[in-house]
Amino acid sequence: MTSKRPKFSNLALIEESDVEYDLSIFALGFESRAVNLLPSVAKRTRALLALGFDHGRELAYEENKRAFSDASVRVEDGLSDREFEEVLRGHLKALDGESHRMVFVDVSCFSRFRLASIVHELFSLSQSLGAGLTIDFAYSLAKFEKPDSIRQPNTVVGPAHRAFAGWSQGGYSSTAAVLGLGYEQDQALGVVEFLQAGEVWAFTPKSPVVEYKAEVDKANDLLLSEIPPNRVLEYDVCAPTSVLATLESVVRGLGDGHSVVLVPFGPKIFVLCSLIVAAMRNEIAVWRVSQGTAIKPSDRAASHVQVGLRVAFPPQDGSSSISSNLGSQQS
């Protein structure tokens, strides 16, 4: 995947922006936060799209579906992952390159596979839109809920998407694992053992929802005790441009001697940053690790915290582009 390097900026509060979007994309799932950002963009988007799953029609699902329908959102429901990619690609192809295009994506409730597919398709789209493309990614941080203390084995371990399997193409004898830590009990440790990683780096989230920190530390205490302190980096959940810069710096330093695999547990904003870094560096892999069907569905309500990242691809033909500062706070 090759593309002009985009410019990045942290978004200001989504509801205070006056940007008009050609397309806004949401996940239709069972978490109530799935519709949290909808009112902020519904009236200033030409086409609204909610993409559903072929499972998980429980908890807040029906209420979310009604909310999308009431807002005149086009709902594509019951999609397998393969169908999701086909539908997404079809809607993105409808964006012609005659003028600069603006796309909004709420990443809060997409699975890692689907978020990887979105990043891959949008980076690919940027190559065909001569007048340029800007994507505003947004994330509703969930209210704190104490994690499930029952440990389940990882049943899904591998690349988040075929486009992010880059590490397997290298000829290095050593693998470096770069982890984003969440409060999934010992899952990060399990994937380090699976990879037999020769070098391990860990990113721990600093969140405005302060209750998360103690649980993240507790869930990863054994792993953290085995990693040198200078390889444990704290990142600000609300500053994705800083996360991108630090993550890319670490990956660049490791890339000369290792096959590098990013394993983003924790907040979706770190998942997004990992995918963007890998999209710009083809040799980097992004893995997903999951307990599969053993995961117990739980509703995640939105907190007061919203995080946004603008990814602006410049025009390819020298035509004028919108300002990267429009509706955002420059990093």
Rank of each mutant, 00 (worst) to 15 (best):
S3E: 07
K4L: 10
K4F: 06
K7T: 15
N10A: 11
L11W: 00
L11M: 13
E15Y: 03
E16L: 12
Y21H: 04
S32R: 06
R33G: 00
T45Y: 11
G56W: 03
R57K: 15
E58N: 10
E62K: 10
E76F: 11
D81C: 01
E83K: 13
V87M: 09
L88K: 07
A94N: 14
E98N: 12
S99V: 15
S99Y: 07
V103C: 04
R112K: 11
F113C: 10
S117F: 03
V119W: 08
V119Q: 10
S126L: 09
G132P: 12
D136A: 08
F137N: 02
I150V: 14
A165N: 13
A165I: 14
G170E: 04
G170C: 00
Y172V: 06
S173Q: 10
S174A: 10
T175D: 00
A177R: 11
G180M: 03
G180S: 08
A188C: 10
V191W: 07
A202C: 08
P208H: 01
E211W: 05
Y212L: 02
Y212E: 07
E215L: 05
E215K: 12
V216Q: 11
D217T: 14
K218Y: 09
S225P: 08
E226C: 08
E226T: 13
N230I: 06
Y235Q: 09
L244Y: 03
S249G: 11
H258T: 09
V261L: 01
G266I: 11
G266M: 08
A279E: 10
A285N: 02
A285H: 06
W287N: 07
R288N: 09
T293L: 07
R300P: 00
A301E: 14
A302V: 06
Q316F: 06
Q316H: 13
S324C: 08
L326C: 08
